[in-house]
Design a protein around this nucleic acid. Structure first.
Lengths: 123, 123
DNA sequence: GTGCATTGAATGCATGTGCATATAGTGTGG
DNA sequence: CCACACTATATGCACATGCATTCAATGCAC
């Protein structure tokens, strides 16, 4: 790949990312009281069948630092969308689990999310 | 485009963005004392022939809010990489202009930037 | 078992960001 | 000329994020 080409493709990526992220942020916040990262976390947990996740696993999945995710979990937990469970085998570990309320909130927000993606990412 | 497809492509975009941004952030900071947004602004100004930019123009170009860009300019100005000039015709307006030091710093950081893009965005 | 390096998660702290607002300048209708 | 709507930038404020550190638990060496 040529030098000006990577720059173009990087700028294109930045533009798509900014536009999509920004719209998601606004509409998810307005209509469902969720940030983009909040939704992304709920989304991951909703699609896993067992519904349990280690903190670090989630952090990798949504590209957040471990500390950022720890606080995000705290916020979601306070909102009742998620709960933390002790990990029996390794008592340092924590399982994060989506609650009924969390599943419900996710289900409600899903159409908004998908609609924006479709509108924003299809040329 | 199908529903699961947009989701995949969104997650792919998020991953590419996070990886590239993160590496840029680290290496540009370590080697050149610049944040990614700092570099992006310098990059725009370096490639314009007249070298003058209105604040809002830059904000659009680098996908930052007007307020964020105002502060970013302040930081770059304090660092001597950029200077603000009165706009004669409209005294509300401000022209941002890259300085010699700014051009130099940009030139120094450019190889790092391009190398990361190439490494990070080519499959 | 005891000591020590390692790992998983939480917290203190600094900082960059967006939203709302303030401030200053422009221009338009009367 | 004056009032008033509008535009361009700066600033107050709240907050999410990353880095460094802390704290607890694990396990490996001996």
């Amino acid at each position: 790949m040529d030098d000006p080409d990577v720059v173009d493709s990087w700028r294109d990526l930045l533009a798509r990312h900014a536009n999509t992220w920004c719209r998601l942020e606004r509409e998810l916040a307005d209509k469902h009281g969720l940030g983009v990262s909040d939704f992304e976390v709920l989304d991951r947990m909703a699609e896993s069948e067992h519904g349990k996740y280690r903190v670090q696993e989630l952090a990798d999945a949504v590209h957040l630092s471990q500390s950022a995710l720890s606080r995000l979990i705290s916020r979601l937990e306070k909102a009742g969308l998620v709960c933390r469970n002790m990990c029996a085998e390794d008592r340092r570990g924590v399982f994060v689990q989506i609650t009924e309320a969390g599943t419900e909130r996710h289900r409600a927000a899903l159409p908004t999310h998908r609609a924006i993606l479709t509108a924003s990412l299809t040329p």
